[in-house]
Design a protein around this nucleic acid. Structure first.
Lengths: 159, 159
DNA sequence: GTAATTCCTAAACCTAACTTTAGCTCAAGC
DNA sequence: GCTTGAGCTAAAGTTAGGTTTAGGAATTAC
């Protein structure tokens, strides 16, 4: 087991459950910056165990690696984040998470409404309603339930 | 505009906001089964407008295309799903969705606890706690916050 | 009847987040 | 001191969910 001169990639992998290849990938993405020993092998700070954990948690929260890199830039290199460091980052986490939860709950509520309305065939279905298009996450124009200038009624009557 | 002999892929795209290429991709994935006209062009049922919408909604709910294909298999081909068809599918949606929301809320609550505890450095942090590993979505064994057989205390004391 | 659209297929390309492979070097144990 | 495991790099492969491109063929509009 490595002692004072930093830890090996294998040990870091063992402690975090990450694959060695994943850690090297994170380095390539600028999420961690190990130094090299005399033989050219990576050496990590012990604090990088937490750094890796932070990455895994942030991923669960739905952040991309570039976003996480942004967070990490505001973290001090080489040491454990303090309460203040973490509190700062938590704000971002919170709002992002709240938004995702809200979207899902809204979607679920609409689904509930649809069970009672015979859904997918009635223009008053909420999943069908234009005002809920805001819930979309995609980039292009996507119209749910085929709702367009032409009404469904028209469409149905044109066999 | 197509009349009695089914609708074209372009019209379906226009009505749903999907790209033509996406619709062809969905066909390749077995999510829709158009027939062909004399000239070899795809013709869709008008009900496929809703079928596409169903796919888009299910995607927003976080389902993968194979999962959605599963849902669609229980739908009647060629006609608008009835209230009963939809109710049957809604059950599945509900439970999946509830589970996803629960996971996120749990994660958020843990985050809240961490803001107060100085997180990422205390063994009593909930994000750090083994019992919350269940919240993981990945496939491999991943240990959050470096929690393994060896305790953090030990690790910290071995510089 | 001809020009402009739309549609066709197959194959290549794209992004994210990694893993796998190949061929080679380093470090550790006995 | 030698064998074995751990580490190295570069490049290619993987999965999901598509888009883009190339080169034709069918439809539609006038």
């Amino acid at each position: 087991m490595p002692q004072s001169a930093g830890i090996s990639i294998g040990y870091l992998a063992e402690r975090t459950g990450l694959a060695v290849s994943a850690i090297r990938y994170y380095e390539a993405q600028g999420l961690v910056e190990p130094w090299r020993n005399a033989g050219g092998q990576r050496r990590f700070h012990r604090a990088d165990i937490r750094r890796m954990s932070f990455i895994m948690i942030a991923q669960q929260f739905g952040f991309s690696l570039p976003e996480i890199r942004g967070f990490l830039r505001s973290l001090p290199g080489g040491r454990t984040p303090t309460k203040d460091d973490w509190a700062r980052i938590s704000e971002d986490f919170r709002s992002h998470l709240d938004q995702r939860i809200e979207t899902l709950v809204k979607l679920r509520d609409n689904l509930d409404g649809c069970i009672g309305c015979g859904c997918l065939s009635l223009p008053n279905c909420k999943l069908y309603n234009p005002e809920d298009r805001a819930a979309q996450k995609g980039q292009g124009p996507r119209y749910l339930m085929g709702d367009r200038p032409e009404t469904e009624a028209e469409a149905e009557n044109a066999p």
